[in-house]
């Protein structure tokens, strides 16, 4: 009991949820190394790399069309903010990364909005951040989308045409749709 009583107060973790889609995901198993619905705790000091190489990347895609390191995510803290933000950086020399409608070339980076669609090649990712208290750690969670993220409005919230969405901004939606 004393361990429980003396333990540090638990802090909630920022959850970075990534919903993934690839048109050939069922046949080619490009996402077979991702553990869907599993929450993984990561240090905020880490740079999380996505790509083909298991030696270089934390999350890998089984596809020779993917660069060894395709892109990275890294947490940081905005001034006067108490929660983590994330940056995304394109690490592929061959393929552009689309964040919403913004195209990132090699080594370009930008702040990720709270909710947005990221694309490269035929890959689609809906990236959503749910704020937590901890600055030391955050967690990731992957979900497999059954259909293209671009075809439909899904998961309860619309993603605007520019690919960005933020809870801090007014969301354009037709109330009658739901």
């Amino acid at each position: 009991m004393s361990g429980f009583e003396d333990a540090d107060t638990e802090e909630t973790l920022t959850c970075f949820q990534v919903t993934v889609y690839h048109p050939n995901q069922e046949h080619n198993q490009v996402f077979q190394t991702l553990r869907f619905f599993n929450r993984e705790r990561l240090s905020s000091m880490e740079v999380i790399k996505f790509g083909r190489s298991p030696n270089l990347c934390h999350y890998t895609f089984q596809d020779k069309q993917v660069s060894r390191v395709q892109f990275s995510l890294q947490p940081f803290k905005q001034f006067n903010s108490s929660v983590l933000s994330f940056e995304i950086k394109n690490l592929s020399k061959k393929t552009s990364l689309l964040v919403g409608n913004i195209e990132l070339g090699y080594l370009n980076k930008m702040d990720l909005p709270g909710r947005c669609i990221v694309r490269f090649g035929e890959y689609q990712f809906l990236m959503e951040k749910e704020d937590g208290e901890s600055l030391e750690y955050f967690e990731t969670r992957f979900v497999l989308a059954p259909r293209s993220l671009l075809e439909e409005r899904h998961y309860g919230k619309p993603v605007p045409e520019n690919g960005f969405s933020s809870s801090t901004l007014p969301t354009e939606m037709d109330e009658n749709e739901y």
Binding site: G105, L107, N108
Partner: peptide
């Protein structure tokens, strides 16, 4: 090191 859009030289971010 990173590249700002339109720049040819590296920019550096101190964290």
């Amino acid at each position: 090191p990173y590249l700002e859009k339109g720049n040819v030289c590296l920019t550096f971010c101190l964290k």
